[in-house]
Structure formats: structure tokens, C-alpha cells
Simulated assay, not measured.
Amino acid sequence: MSDEDGLELTEENARVPRLGEIGLENFPPYLMNRIMGRYNAALRDEMGKLGLTTPKMRTLAVLSVLDGLLIRDLAIYAVVETSTLSRALDALERDGLVQRVTDREDSRAVRIHLTSKGRETHDMLWPHLATAYQQMFRGISEADQRAFVATLQAILKNVRKHPI
């Protein structure tokens, strides 16, 4: 038997504790949302100075590592809805930070590339991203950080809908 999301209901998970029983401070999705909310808030002023929003910043960050992605893949990596990404790309292109290039193999597909100005903008933001990242892990051993990242990777593998 399955629920409406297609999750298999078994005797083992039929009686899952309610959120009130678990408590917000023990519920990982809540904790992850709080952490990312604080991370984004810590960067908001610096992003604003560069004319960036969170979707624009994520786009530049992903392209700084994986330049030339197809729009659909960029949306997945940047964790941005396609419609939001489309608006962000329009603004980033208008500001000269990214360039749309028709795919060589499929003329219907478009790849997104960072321009030199886009790379410079990301490079200006990077120290602030790195500081926020370091603050998150202050007082946490390297071994615990590696274990945490491995756990996050396993969770992502369990929940992802795309091969990337």
C-alpha cells in the first residue's frame, strides 16, 4: 500500500511520531531550513551590494564550477524553480553576468555561460560565502564535517528525482 506521494506504507512506518512528539529541534528538515535561512540572510547585504538575489547568487556559484550547463540542469543544481531561474537569467544576462548560447548538438537547447564580469562578481562574493560557510562549521571537527557531508550526500541520493 502507498500514500499519495508514492511512499510505501509499511507496518514499520505506519505509526510515525507526529511533529509535536519529535519536536522542531529534533526534526532535520526544520533544522536544515533554519540553517539555510540564516546562511542566506548572512549573505543578503553583500549580495544586494552586487545587485544579486539568492537565485542569482546560486546561479553564479553553480556556473563558477559547472559552466555551460543546460537551463534544466542549472535549475536542479541551483535549487531554483525554472520560472524563477528564467527571471534571474534574464536579469543576469541584462547585467552582462551570463550569456545564453545555443547548444551545438541540439539547436532547441540553451547553455548558460558565465561571462568574465559574472566570474568577477562571483569572485567578489566568494569571500563572504566562504566566511558564512566557515562560521557554520566553527567548533566542529574535520572528521565530523566529513561525516556530516557524507550523511547529506546519502540523504540527497534518497530524495532526489534527478540523476544529478
Rank of each mutant, 00 (worst) to 15 (best):
E25A: 13
Q145I: 13
E105C: 09
D67I: 02
D73F: 05
Q99H: 13
I155Q: 12
T82H: 11
Y133Q: 10
N26G: 04
R58E: 00
G6K: 02
D144E: 11
K157A: 14
M1Q: 11
L50G: 07
I164S: 11
L19Y: 07
M124L: 13
H122E: 14
K49C: 03
R18W: 11
L125H: 02
M1S: 09
P127A: 11
Y133H: 15
H162R: 09
T82Y: 15
L69T: 06
L156A: 10
L70M: 12
K117G: 06
L60G: 04
Q134N: 15
E4R: 08
E12C: 01
T102Q: 11
Y77G: 01
I35A: 10
T82V: 15
A130P: 00
S107F: 06
A109M: 12
P127N: 06
T59S: 07
N26W: 06
L50P: 13
F27Q: 07
H122S: 10
I71G: 01
N13M: 10
I35W: 00
L89G: 00
T10E: 03
G48A: 05
R58H: 04
L31M: 06
R34K: 09
G51Y: 04
E93V: 04
R160A: 06
A75S: 03
I35Y: 10
A75H: 06
D73I: 02
L43R: 04
R72I: 10
K161C: 10
M136D: 04
T151F: 13
L156N: 14
I76P: 00
M124F: 03
D123L: 08
G6F: 03
N40S: 14
M136A: 12
L60K: 01
E21K: 02
D67G: 06
V65L: 15
N33I: 12
L9N: 13
D123C: 06
T121W: 00
H162W: 14
V101N: 03
E93R: 12
D90P: 04
A41W: 05
L50W: 02
H128G: 03
